[in-house]
């Protein structure tokens, strides 16, 4: 994973390093200190803005991003932005795209975005409908893996064994049940839509490339961005990017791309690490390292990570060995 700095040292300069970047989500918003979602949103929308010369309309579902970015009299967005409800963003975006089509303005691109709650759960119906119609919308899901705005309740994206307000561990219960949870990128690919990708703010260059690739494709596209949340996951605010990197490096958050339902590429993990080094710094997994917790608790997550390494062909050495 090319983790060069964002500027022109080593890698190609990113949009985020451009002094004249659009700053689609600008300063003064009310996100928590070290908020991953705020950064993910700026990176994604800036990349889309840059690729289309600013021709984008954004539809936002209710959630943390919406609440902390647009509350009268403060609006942090510099792009056309519409918020309707929690579960209808995909449908609203379908409407916006239809309106543009009716006026023959296909060059203007439509982006719908929301958190994992809005995307995995309450908005799943509308999302599937949008994919079903292959509407010309890029849906971006900022995945912080729980309902953060209402106080860290479990969502369909909450990882196995994670602590949330509605999956509090105790003697016999180790957090979110590993048999539950959804894999939305796979569900999106099952709809056969033109493009699906996962990304992370731990690798902004990779994120930007995927957004600009997606924005140029017609039909439904889905990008899911891993955005750690210091409040919800319980780690120091300065470590948001480090935690995001560790998630990818340990294999629990595979970065890959799919087209028309088939896996076409993945961002390689050069030096895979055990899941423990990703889990241990987070309070939401602290109970897995408690005294009387059996070792195979972490083993469950390690198996998932190993499965991802293989399934998404993340690390060539391991696979070739």
């Amino acid at each position: 994973m090319s983790n060069f700095p964002l500027g022109n040292i080593g890698g190609t300069p990113t949009v985020q390093s451009d002094f004249a970047r659009p700053n689609s989500l600008t300063g003064g918003h009310r996100g928590c200190q070290g908020c991953g979602e705020a950064l993910g949103a700026r990176c994604a929308i800036d990349a889309a803005h840059q690729t289309t010369g600013g021709k984008i309309l954004v539809v936002n579902a209710t959630g943390c991003l919406e609440v902390f970015s647009c509350c009268f009299p403060e609006n942090s967005w510099s792009v056309p932005w519409l918020h309707s409800l929690f579960g209808n963003a995909p449908a609203v975006a379908t409407g916006v795209a239809a309106a543009l089509r009716s006026r023959g303005q296909d060059s203007i691109r439509v982006i719908a975005q929301g958190g994992d709650g809005a995307t995995y759960d309450i908005g799943m119906g509308c999302l599937s409908g949008m994919f079903d119609r292959n509407d010309d919308v890029l849906y971006i899901c900022y995945d912080n893996q729980a309902y953060m705005n209402t106080g860290v309740q479990r969502s369909g994206a909450t990882p196995p064994l994670a602590r949330t307000a509605t999956t509090l561990p105790n003697k016999s219960y180790l957090g979110s049940d590993p048999q539950t949870g959804k894999n939305l990128p796979e569900i999106a690919m099952a709809h056969g839509i033109p493009y699906v990708a996962t990304a992370s703010i731990g690798n902004i260059r990779d994120l930007e490339q995927k957004v600009s690739r997606a924005i140029n494709i017609r039909g439904s596209r889905y990008i899911q961005i891993h955005v750690p949340c210091p409040l919800g996951w319980g780690y120091p605010t300065a470590e948001t990017i480090r935690i995001a990197r560790l998630a990818v490096q340990c294999g629990l958050y595979p970065l890959f791309e799919g087209e028309y339902g088939k896996l076409v590429g993945s961002t390689p993990v050069e030096e895979p690490i055990p899941v423990e080094s990703y889990l241990r710094p987070q309070r939401r997994f602290a109970h897995l390292f408690g005294k009387n917790v059996s070792a195979n608790a972490v083993g469950v997550l390690q198996n998932i990570a190993n499965g991802n390494m293989e399934k998404y062909r993340l690390n060539w050495e391991i696979l070739d060995a």
């Binding site: 964002l6 390093s17 700053n23 908020c35």
Partner: peptide, 19 residues
Amino acid sequence: FHCDNCYGHCPDNAIRKQQ
């Protein structure tokens, strides 16, 4: 050494980069 990491990773767009 002007690698722009701070400018690029700030969630609050609170670092300014001049031309």
